[in-house]
Amino acid sequence: MLDKKDQQLLVALQSQARISISDLASRISLSDTPCLRRIKKLEQEKVIIGYHAALDPKALNLNVLVYAFVRLSQNSVSAAEQFEQHVEKLPHVLECCVISGSYDYLLKIIAHDLESYEQFVKHQLGGLSYIANIESTVVLKQSFSKKQLPL
Protein backbone atom coordinates (compact mmCIF):
# COMPACT_ATOMS: atom_id res chain seq x y z
CA MET A 1 0.00 0.00 0.00
CA LEU A 2 1.30 3.42 -0.92
CA ASP A 3 1.45 6.08 1.74
CA LYS A 4 1.11 9.82 1.16
CA LYS A 5 4.88 10.34 0.67
CA ASP A 6 5.03 7.56 -1.92
CA GLN A 7 2.11 9.13 -3.79
CA GLN A 8 3.79 12.56 -3.69
CA LEU A 9 6.99 10.97 -4.98
CA LEU A 10 5.17 9.30 -7.85
CA VAL A 11 3.30 12.48 -8.81
CA ALA A 12 6.58 14.40 -8.90
CA LEU A 13 8.42 11.70 -10.88
CA GLN A 14 5.61 11.39 -13.43
CA SER A 15 5.84 15.08 -14.26
CA GLN A 16 9.64 15.35 -14.09
CA ALA A 17 11.49 12.02 -14.06
CA ARG A 18 14.92 13.64 -14.33
CA ILE A 19 14.54 15.71 -11.18
CA SER A 20 17.54 15.42 -8.86
CA ILE A 21 17.13 13.40 -5.67
CA SER A 22 17.86 16.54 -3.63
CA ASP A 23 15.14 18.55 -5.38
CA LEU A 24 12.70 15.67 -5.19
CA ALA A 25 13.39 15.09 -1.50
CA SER A 26 12.97 18.79 -0.81
CA ARG A 27 9.69 18.90 -2.75
CA ILE A 28 8.14 16.15 -0.61
CA SER A 29 9.81 17.19 2.68
CA LEU A 30 12.23 14.29 3.07
CA SER A 31 15.98 14.07 3.25
CA ASP A 32 17.90 12.57 0.32
CA THR A 33 18.57 9.08 1.71
CA PRO A 34 14.99 8.20 2.71
CA CYS A 35 13.76 9.63 -0.59
CA LEU A 36 16.16 7.47 -2.58
CA ARG A 37 15.26 4.45 -0.43
CA ARG A 38 11.57 4.96 -1.26
CA ILE A 39 12.32 5.23 -5.00
CA LYS A 40 14.36 1.99 -4.92
CA LYS A 41 11.54 0.24 -3.04
CA LEU A 42 8.96 1.44 -5.61
CA GLU A 43 11.21 0.21 -8.42
CA GLN A 44 11.69 -3.20 -6.76
CA GLU A 45 7.93 -3.53 -6.23
CA LYS A 46 7.43 -2.70 -9.95
CA VAL A 47 5.32 0.37 -9.16
CA ILE A 48 7.94 2.34 -11.10
CA ILE A 49 8.63 0.31 -14.22
CA GLY A 50 10.89 2.68 -16.13
CA TYR A 51 11.92 6.19 -17.05
CA HIS A 52 11.35 7.53 -20.54
CA ALA A 53 11.92 10.61 -22.64
CA ALA A 54 8.72 12.04 -24.11
CA LEU A 55 9.22 12.72 -27.81
CA ASP A 56 7.16 14.85 -30.17
CA PRO A 57 6.00 12.55 -33.01
CA LYS A 58 5.56 15.46 -35.42
CA ALA A 59 9.19 16.52 -34.90
CA LEU A 60 10.14 13.01 -36.03
CA ASN A 61 7.85 13.16 -39.08
CA LEU A 62 5.40 10.69 -37.55
CA ASN A 63 2.22 12.49 -38.52
CA VAL A 64 -0.45 9.79 -38.59
CA LEU A 65 -1.94 8.04 -35.57
CA VAL A 66 -4.24 5.10 -36.23
CA TYR A 67 -6.28 2.78 -34.05
CA ALA A 68 -6.67 -0.58 -35.78
CA PHE A 69 -9.25 -3.13 -34.70
CA VAL A 70 -8.09 -6.65 -35.48
CA ARG A 71 -10.13 -9.84 -35.61
CA LEU A 72 -8.27 -13.14 -35.69
CA SER A 73 -9.43 -15.91 -37.99
CA GLN A 74 -8.97 -18.48 -35.23
CA ASN A 75 -9.99 -18.08 -31.65
CA SER A 76 -7.09 -20.10 -30.26
CA VAL A 77 -4.30 -19.54 -27.79
CA SER A 78 -1.76 -20.35 -30.48
CA ALA A 79 -3.07 -17.72 -32.92
CA ALA A 80 -3.27 -15.11 -30.15
CA GLU A 81 0.30 -15.81 -29.01
CA GLN A 82 1.63 -15.68 -32.57
CA PHE A 83 -0.17 -12.41 -33.24
CA GLU A 84 1.01 -10.78 -29.99
CA GLN A 85 4.60 -11.89 -30.53
CA HIS A 86 4.53 -10.57 -34.10
CA VAL A 87 3.08 -7.13 -33.35
CA GLU A 88 5.31 -6.62 -30.31
CA LYS A 89 8.31 -6.64 -32.67
CA LEU A 90 6.83 -3.96 -34.93
CA PRO A 91 8.17 -0.54 -33.89
CA HIS A 92 5.18 1.35 -35.33
CA VAL A 93 2.79 -0.51 -33.01
CA LEU A 94 2.75 1.55 -29.82
CA GLU A 95 0.10 -0.43 -27.94
CA CYS A 96 -1.66 -3.77 -28.27
CA CYS A 97 -4.77 -4.46 -26.20
CA VAL A 98 -6.98 -7.54 -26.00
CA ILE A 99 -10.54 -6.24 -26.17
CA SER A 100 -14.08 -7.54 -25.88
CA GLY A 101 -16.70 -7.24 -28.56
CA SER A 102 -16.59 -8.11 -32.24
CA TYR A 103 -12.81 -7.60 -32.51
CA ASP A 104 -10.04 -9.36 -30.63
CA TYR A 105 -7.37 -6.62 -30.49
CA LEU A 106 -6.96 -2.88 -30.58
CA LEU A 107 -3.62 -1.61 -31.89
CA LYS A 108 -2.31 1.94 -31.58
CA ILE A 109 -0.09 2.54 -34.60
CA ILE A 110 1.98 5.54 -35.63
CA ALA A 111 3.17 6.22 -39.17
CA HIS A 112 4.79 8.93 -41.26
CA ASP A 113 1.75 9.36 -43.49
CA LEU A 114 -1.29 7.47 -44.79
CA GLU A 115 0.71 5.86 -47.58
CA SER A 116 3.24 4.41 -45.14
CA TYR A 117 0.38 3.19 -42.94
CA GLU A 118 -1.17 1.47 -45.96
CA GLN A 119 2.15 -0.23 -46.70
CA PHE A 120 2.44 -1.25 -43.05
CA VAL A 121 -1.01 -2.86 -43.11
CA LYS A 122 -0.38 -4.65 -46.42
CA HIS A 123 3.10 -5.92 -45.62
CA GLN A 124 3.29 -6.22 -41.84
CA LEU A 125 -0.25 -7.21 -40.85
CA GLY A 126 -2.27 -8.16 -43.91
CA GLY A 127 -0.05 -11.09 -44.80
CA LEU A 128 -0.58 -12.89 -41.50
CA SER A 129 -2.77 -15.94 -42.09
CA TYR A 130 -4.42 -15.75 -38.65
CA ILE A 131 -5.84 -12.25 -39.20
CA ALA A 132 -9.40 -12.26 -40.54
CA ASN A 133 -10.13 -8.53 -40.54
CA ILE A 134 -8.52 -5.15 -39.83
CA GLU A 135 -10.59 -2.01 -39.41
CA SER A 136 -8.66 1.24 -39.12
CA THR A 137 -9.68 4.52 -37.54
CA VAL A 138 -7.41 7.45 -38.37
CA VAL A 139 -7.04 10.13 -35.71
CA LEU A 140 -7.74 13.51 -37.27
CA LYS A 141 -6.64 15.50 -34.23
CA GLN A 142 -5.42 14.43 -30.84
CA SER A 143 -6.90 16.85 -28.33
CA PHE A 144 -4.70 15.62 -25.51
CA SER A 145 -2.78 12.59 -24.34
CA LYS A 146 -2.14 12.10 -20.66
CA LYS A 147 0.97 10.30 -19.54
CA GLN A 148 0.40 10.74 -15.82
CA LEU A 149 -1.73 8.28 -13.90
CA PRO A 150 -4.19 9.67 -11.35
CA LEU A 151 -2.99 9.08 -7.80
Rank of each mutant, 00 (worst) to 15 (best):
I19E: 09
L149G: 00
C35F: 06
E118Y: 03
G127P: 01
V64T: 15
S26I: 08
D3N: 15
P57G: 07
F69R: 11
E84T: 14
I99R: 04
L106R: 13
F83V: 09
D113K: 09
V139I: 14
L125I: 01
E115G: 08
S136Y: 04
K147C: 02
E43S: 06
S76G: 03
D6G: 02
Q148R: 09
Y51T: 09
S102A: 11
L36C: 07
D113W: 01
T137K: 10
Q44C: 00
L42I: 03
L2E: 09
S76F: 00
I49R: 14
V64E: 14
S78P: 00
V98C: 08
L107T: 12
L125F: 03
S129K: 07
V47H: 07
V138C: 01
S26Y: 09
Q74E: 15
E135W: 05
S136F: 05
K147D: 06
Y117S: 01
Y103P: 05
A54R: 11
A12I: 11
D104F: 04
Y103R: 04
S26C: 08
P34L: 07
K40E: 13
S136A: 13
L10R: 03
Q148E: 14
L140I: 13
S143Q: 11
S136K: 01
Q119T: 10
R71F: 05
A17E: 05
H123V: 00
A25I: 13
Y117A: 02
N61C: 13
Y105V: 09
A79E: 02
E43W: 00
Q7F: 00
K40C: 04
V77Y: 08
A80L: 03
L94E: 14
M1I: 06
K89G: 10
Y105M: 10
H52L: 11
Q124G: 00
A53R: 12
Q142T: 15
S145L: 05
D3S: 04
A111R: 05
H92N: 15
L42F: 02
S100Q: 08
E43P: 04
R38D: 12
F144L: 11
N61A: 15
V98Q: 11
R71T: 15
Y117C: 03
L24Q: 11
S129Y: 03
I99Q: 07
R38Y: 08
N75Y: 05
G127A: 00
V121M: 01
C35S: 12
A111C: 13
Q142L: 08
K4G: 04
D23V: 10
H86W: 03
E45A: 12
L24C: 13
A54F: 03
R37L: 14
P34H: 05
R37W: 09
H86K: 15
G126H: 02
L36P: 05
E118K: 14
F69G: 04
P91M: 05
L60D: 04
R27H: 09
C97T: 08
L90Q: 13
V11N: 09
L9R: 02
Y67K: 13
K41V: 06
Y67G: 06
G127N: 03
K122W: 00
I48D: 07
I28Q: 06
I28T: 08
A53W: 06
Y117H: 13
G126Y: 04
A54W: 00
Y130E: 11
S100Y: 14
K141L: 09
V93R: 09
C97K: 14
V66A: 08
L125V: 01
K122H: 10
A25D: 10
H123W: 02
V77D: 08
I28L: 15
A80E: 10
S145E: 12
L128A: 03
S102M: 06
